[in-house]
Design a protein around this nucleic acid. Structure first.
Lengths: 224, 224
DNA sequence: TGCAAATCCGCACTGAGTGCGGTTATGGTG
DNA sequence: CACCATAACCGCACTCAGTGCGGATTTGCA
C-alpha cells in the first residue's frame, strides 16, 4: 500500500498521520492561494508543492492530480448525505429524505471550505478539466446516494427507480442552477449563490412535490 | 483561423474539405481499431496519427485530444434532437417533445457509428478521462436542448424550468441506465443495451407521465 | 499561371504523471 | 534506549499530451 489514498482518519492519531493531514491541508491552502493569484492553468504542480515545502514528486502521493485539490472533502460530503438518509424520520418519504440529504451536500464546514467552494464554482465554469472532474464526482455521489436510498426504502424503491429518482432530483437542480448562475456573474456573492440554489431546488422539485402530494390532495391547477 | 474546429460542413464541397473529412473519418476508424486491439491507454496519439498516415502534430488540428475521437458526431446528435423539438406536433406537450428528442440522440447513423457506440460504452465505464468527457458533452447537449425547449414552449416554460425539466429527464434516464448496465456485462449485446435503455426510459418517465396526465385523468394508484 | 490562404508537419518546449531506488523518519518491540 | 520493519520522502529519468513557431506544400480562385 503506497500511502493511504485519501487519508480518511477522522482524528489522525499517530504523529505520522497528523503530519500527513497537515501537509494535505497545507497543499490545499497553498493551491487556493496560487489559483486565486495566478490562475488555475498558470499554476503548476511544482509551484504548489514548492509553496507547501514538499517535493514535486511527493505531491502525487497526496493528490493524484491538480483538480483533486479542489475536491478534498468530496467524500465527507457524500458521507454526510448518506447519514442524513439513514437517520430519516418514520413518516418521511423518499423525496423528503432525498431532499434533506442533498441539502447536506451543499453545506460548507468552515471558512476555508466556503472560500474553496467559491473558487471551485468559478473554475468549474472556466476550466474544462475541473468541470469534468466535478461532474465525475457528482455522478459517483449520485450513485452512492441512490444506493442508500434504495436500502432505506426497500418496499417502495428498487435499485433502478432509486437511481432514477436521485438522477432526476440532482439533474434538475444542477441543470436549473447552471442557468441561474449563468445569467449574471453573481458567483462572488455567496448570498446570491445561496438564493440561486434555493430557487433551483424549488423549480426542480415542484413536479415531485405535486406527485408526492397525490395521495393527499388534488393540486389546484394543471400548468407545468 | 487555424483550421475549422469541427469541420462542420454538411457536404464538404471543395477538394480541401472533402480531403479533410476523409482524413477525419480515417482517424476515427484507425483509433477504433487500435483501441479495440491494444486498449485505450496503450494507444498513443502518435500511433493513431501514424495509422492514418498523418503527422503527429497534424492530429491536433483534427481533434483536440484522444478522447475527442470517441465523440466525433456528438453535435450532429444534438442538432438532430433540436430539429425534433422544432418539428413538434401541435398537440404535444413539453414532456412528449423532450422524450422524442432524446430518442433521436440515441440513434446510430451507420455500422461504424454503432461499433463506435459499443466501444464508447465500454470505455466510458473504464477510462476516467473518457467518462469525464462524455459527461461534459452530455451536459452541453442538455443545455442546448433545454434552450430550444424553452423556445418551443414560451408560455409554459421559462429558461429555468426548461433546464430543470431537461435535467430531470436526462438525469433520471442516465442514472437508471447506469444501474441497469452495471448488473451484468451485457455491454457487448446491442439488444440488451437497447432493452436497458427502454427500461431506463420507462422507469424515469413514470412520474412525469403521471404528472402530465393530471389534467386529463386521475391515476389509479398512489405508490411511488 | 500566379498569388493568397489553408494546411501540413518537424522541432523544440512545457507540464502532467509514473517507475525506480536510495534516503530518512516513525512506531513498535525487546 | 536500541533496533528494525515499514511508511514516507523525493531526486532522476522517462513517456506522453499538448502548444507555438516557422517553413514547405497544397488548394482555391481569378
Amino acid at each position: 500500500m503506497p500511502i493511504c489514498v485519501e487519508c480518511r482518519m477522522l482524528w489522525p492519531v499517530s504523529l505520522r498521520e497528523r503530519k500527513r493531514a497537515r501537509i494535505r491541508q497545507t497543499l490545499v491552502e497553498a493551491a487556493i492561494e496560487l489559483f486565486e493569484r495566478d490562475g488555475y492553468d498558470e499554476t503548476t504542480i511544482a509551484d504548489i508543492a514548492a509553496a507547501a515545502d514538499i517535493g514535486t514528486r511527493t505531491f502525487f502521493s497526496y493528490f493524484a492530480s491538480k483538480e483533486e485539490l479542489l475536491f478534498p472533502e468530496s467524500d465527507a460530503r457524500v458521507r454526510a448525505a448518506v447519514e442524513a438518509i439513514e437517520s430519516r424520520g418514520p413518516d418521511d418519504g423518499p423525496a423528503e429524505v432525498l431532499l434533506r440529504a442533498l441539502r447536506k451536500v451543499g453545506e460548507d464546514s468552515d471558512d476555508m471550505a466556503s472560500r474553496l467552494a467559491a473558487l471551485r464554482l468559478r473554475l468549474v465554469r472556466t476550466v474544462p478539466v475541473v468541470r469534468g472532474r466535478a461532474l465525475q464526482i457528482q455522478l459517483d455521489a449520485q450513485r452512492e446516494i441512490a444506493r442508500n436510498l434504495a436500502e432505506a426504502f426497500p418496499e417502495q424503491l428498487d435499485e433502478v427507480s432509486a437511481a432514477a429518482l436521485t438522477g432526476a432530483f440532482i439533474g434538475a437542480i444542477t441543470s436549473a442552477l447552471q442557468v441561474l448562475l449563468d445569467d449574471t456573474d453573481k458567483l462572488d456573492d455567496p448570498a446570491a449563490v445561496q438564493e440561486a440554489v434555493r430557487r433551483a431546488t424549488d423549480v426542480a422539485l415542484t413536479p415531485w412535490l405535486r406527485a408526492s402530494a397525490w395521495t393527499v390532495e388534488q393540486p389546484p391547477h394543471g400548468t407545468a
